[in-house]
Design a binder for these strands. Structure first.
Lengths: 245, 245
DNA sequence: AGCACTATATTGGTAAGGCCGCAATCTCAA
DNA sequence: TTGAGATTGCGGCCTTACCAATATAGTGCT
């Protein structure tokens, strides 16, 4: 908290006050000037803090009227937005995308299923080229999410992929996996597609969970290999350093 | 774009310029005075725009040095984020929070379970007062999410509640429900708590799904009460579509 | 009672200036 | 020649003060 920017401190205190119930959702919180006086900062600083809370989805400002509380619990700043590990993200994906696949199996139209098949073809083509791309993989999974015909499900899945793509830890480990020459498993995706084609919700759910579970396993193997490699380098460095002349 | 706050317009243009490659990652972008001159706005406005980009994870400010580009693609504002209907959000919550409850039943510590019980007490107290508050309800559900000890799950659940609270459609319908005098069901939450206490993952999952399914039912009843004929058809369609498998 | 108008409160935006940290450069001595 | 320390300019940070736009409430007139 010390050394942080002033508007962040104000935003944090304000969010704490909101979460504590001082300003329940729907109510209007004090005017900028009052807040400035209360926190002993200038008005622009209060404005900045309010903008931060607005972006966090905690409050909503209505011009000329006031700033209103929207979500009492949305103020928790994830200042270091995402440093969520890949295993946590994958566990969440197993939980959620599994259910989404089950729902999509019942809701997708024939056209959408055809598009999904097309994306799978793209993935095969992508695998043929030695590129490291996996954009088709993301397209495949998000297309299934859209196949639920539920915007909230789509939003959540997009959120999960954003977590994955913006996580520095994930980026490092995923890079290792790519270097290991691993590619998206076509057969596993095909199983999912076929289950959806049969409109078999339970099979689609299980196929998705099984697929992601295997990705977890793949990541475990890769990290283990990485740990071994790091240990080997360390030993070699020590051996060189402490070698007898 | 028109009518939006000024700092948002500036942030959007700036993000577009960054995404276009004018300022590659790692480089320092012009001083805020220069930017103020270039966008023909005042310096505080530029500061606000930079704060917005900073929260979005697009840039990083280093005190006394300058503001540096971090992620070229993080500037996409989700300004049009929400207008997702409450039924869609609830369906997603059934799918995801059910799984989360099951995982939490296995992962929560005894202390966390005690805190959850405390929150339930808050909910009872809240119900006693004639207030329309339901902040304890949100606290209860998010505490279960945290009980999974998985930050990705927490992030997703927070995202869902944010969708709910920021959706104008939801706000309208939820207000109707509140006017109908309905309060969070204590018994249903108690069932969830007891299942978690017993470490019974399957029971916790089912209790959560059952609870949310009843909320759907409650919403259906509330909307049906004042629905026009056209709305009635839509509700019936929704009831069929959102039925439990 | 209903309606139009005004008064006030509140946010939106601007201008100018002092302060402090950082970093490059410049100077001076070894 | 080279290294270390002082200087200076740049840039962000925060403040005070001011004016504009707007929504809400109150008020008076019809």
């Amino acid at each position: 908290m010390q050394g942080a920017r002033l508007y962040q401190q104000v935003a944090e205190q304000l969010a704490a006050a909101i979460a504590a119930g001082d300003y329940p959702p729907g109510t209007r919180l004090p005017a900028e000037r009052k807040l400035a006086e209360r926190f002993e900062v200038s008005r622009p600083t209060v404005r900045e803090a309010i903008i931060a809370l607005e972006i966090a989805g905690c409050v909503e400002v209505k011009g000329g009227s006031g700033v209103y509380v929207v979500d009492a619990n949305a103020g928790t700043f994830k200042a270091t937005d995402s440093d969520i590990g890949p295993f946590e993200i994958l566990q969440a994906r197993i939980m959620f995308e599994g259910e989404a696949a089950g729902l999509a199996a019942r809701q997708m139209s024939d056209d959408e299923i055809a598009e999904l098949e097309q994306i799978l073809q793209e993935m095969i083509a992508e695998n043929a080229t030695e590129a490291k791309a996996e954009v088709a993989d993301e397209k495949f999974h998000l297309h299934i999410a859209r196949g639920t015909h539920n915007d909230a499900v789509v939003s959540v899945c997009e959120h999960l992929w954003q977590l994955r793509n913006s996580s520095s830890i994930s980026a490092r480990i995923l890079e290792k996996v790519r270097q290991a020459g691993s590619k998206p498993r076509i057969e596993e995706h095909l199983k999912i597609l076929n289950a959806i084609k049969r409109r078999d919700a339970e099979a689609a759910r299980n196929a998705m969970r099984d697929h992601l579970q295997r990705v977890v396993q793949q990541l475990l193997d890769a990290t283990e290999a990485e740990a071994l490699e790091a240990a080997r380098r360390e030993v070699n460095a020590a051996r060189e350093r402490f070698a007898l002349p």
